[in-house]
Design a protein around this nucleic acid. Structure first.
Lengths: 128, 128
DNA sequence: AATAAAACAGTAATCATTACTATTTTAGAA
DNA sequence: TTCTAAAATAGTAATGATTACTGTTTTATT
């Protein structure tokens, strides 16, 4: 399957590069539509999936029923606010020590782990 | 909102109690239908949500797009097989040390974490 | 037995995502 | 440059899990 260049894909990737808030497919769609008014939602989904498969972006699942996408492919933790639903990065080194520990308790082969944190983001904590 | 007893709810809970494989709503539905042929899928969903809200069962989200349910409400880790999709328990002590470490890096309030492991379960590892 | 709240069955609606199809674009060869 | 086949697209339909709605039945209490 030989990749062919597409302006829509470029635009999707370029948009993601400008955002640190891990937008959903729908947010990408609404924004990219400003440069490509006729782009279809299917095109957005297809390219997000393609880019994620190529390892150029990351798909993030934080249990809110919607996939989020991240231009930053370096491994890092995420936080999800239970109040506003925002997804933010944690600038904290990742460790696989739990995975290695878990392997001791498991007969199959553990290849990786998913970890994210939840609670209230700074904006959603009532200030006096 | 005063709870009222329901045979359907009992049956759903009783079924879950017999299973260690974290069935989905649909699996619960198919099985409970053997005792309640007319039970509706909506009833299953409503009761699973109710029981989870009451803390009598646990809702498990492992990124496969379907919610799983667990009769065991004690905190424990889960493993998801990337090949067959099964969800199994890990008999490993839980730690919140990552959450506490993460708090150092985050301005909001971290209330908890979600961690699960993925890879190949024993059944899905080719044996010679 | 009367009653009101809760739960139910059955069905329709929602929402994110994927699949399909006919048309357009890309990129490399003639 | 023109031709061609593969890839990508827009637009739309379909899927699948879940939730919402509605009129009826159960439950538990008076």
């Amino acid at each position: 399957m030989n990749l062919k260049h597409s302006k829509q894909r470029d635009s999707i990737k370029a948009f993601l590069a400008t955002r640190k808030d891990h937008p959903t497919a729908d947010v990408v769609y609404k924004n990219v539509r400003q440069s490509f008014p006729n782009i279809s939602l299917g095109t957005v989904y297809r390219n997000l999936t393609l880019l994620a498969d190529l390892g150029e972006i990351t798909r993030i699942r934080v249990g809110d029923g919607v996939d989020h996408f991240d231009y930053d492919t370096s491994p890092h933790y995420h936080f999800v606010c239970s109040a506003c639903g925002c997804v933010t990065d944690l600038d904290m080194p990742m460790t696989d020590q739990i995975s290695r520990a878990a392997q001791e308790y498991f007969e199959g082969e553990i290849e990786g782990q998913v970890t994210y944190f939840y609670g209230r983001c700074d904006n959603c904590i009532p200030k006096n």
